[in-house]
Structure formats: C-alpha cells, structure tokens
C-alpha cells in the first residue's frame, strides 16, 4: 500500500455504482435466512469484474466513497442525536428528570 492516489475523475465516474453494489447501503438483506442463502453486497473483486475495473481501484473507490458519503454536518448531527437519544432513554426508563434551568 502506498500513498499514490486515485484519479478523482475515475472516482466520480464510478462512486455511485460501487457504493450501490457493495455492502455500504444494505437494503433487504434477508437476515433471517440461513447463511449461504442471503443476498449480500458484492466483493470488490466481483464489482471490479462487473464494472471492468481492477480490484484495487474498486477497493479505493469504495473506501473513499464510504467516507465521502455524508458531509461534516452529519457528524455534528450525530453528537446531538446520541445525547438526545441517551437522555430520553434514561428519562423514560429510570425516571430521571431534567433539572430546571
């Protein structure tokens, strides 16, 4: 592995296709089916064969796209989501009340 990097134009061209074919966004994977009968995301090698790319390029596109998918604002929303969800759970389950300001 080196710090040579992917051509941004290649990335832009194939990003959506790679994300869709991989396990990144999982839709209707029938989890209750026995192993071996589930629909799974394709491996990088399988995606490469389908898109006629080499496997290393697909791996790089997928790794970058998974990070690129949401912008930084989603990271900020994550903090608020967790604080709110945690606080609500404790309030509902344990009866902890917020202190009045």
């Amino acid at each position: 592995m080196t710090f040579s990097y992917l051509d941004p134009e290649i990335y832009k061209k194939y990003r959506d296709a790679v994300i869709e074919l991989s396990n990144s966004i999982q839709v209707d994977i029938n989890e209750h089916l026995p192993p071996g009968q589930r629909r799974r995301g394709l491996s990088d090698r399988e995606i490469a064969e389908r898109l006629q790319l080499d496997e290393a390029t697909v791996t790089e596109i997928r790794a970058i796209a998974e990070r690129d998918y949401y912008d930084l604002a989603e990271w900020d929303r994550a903090i608020e989501f967790k604080r709110k969800a945690c606080r609500e759970y404790v309030e509902n389950r344990i009866g902890l009340k917020r202190k009045k300001p």
Binding site: Q26, D28, I29, E66, D71, L72, E74, W75, A78
Partner: peptide, 29 residues
C-alpha cells in the same frame, strides 16, 4: 420475524466513529 431490513452504514459510521478516524479525516479535510 424481522423483515425487509434497511441499514445505512455510512450514517452509522458518523455516529459510531463520531470522534475517531473517520471524524478526524472529515475535520482535517
């Protein structure tokens, strides 16, 4: 039984790795 599950792994990453390497990469960018 549970059925038709949907999972947004990219969004889950923003929450599970909020303050970790993915968050670091976004901040550095």
């Amino acid at each position: 039984r549970f059925a038709a599950p949907r999972y947004d792994r990219a969004r889950c990453t923003t929450r599970v790795y909020n303050h970790w390497i993915p968050g670091f990469q976004k901040g550095l960018e």
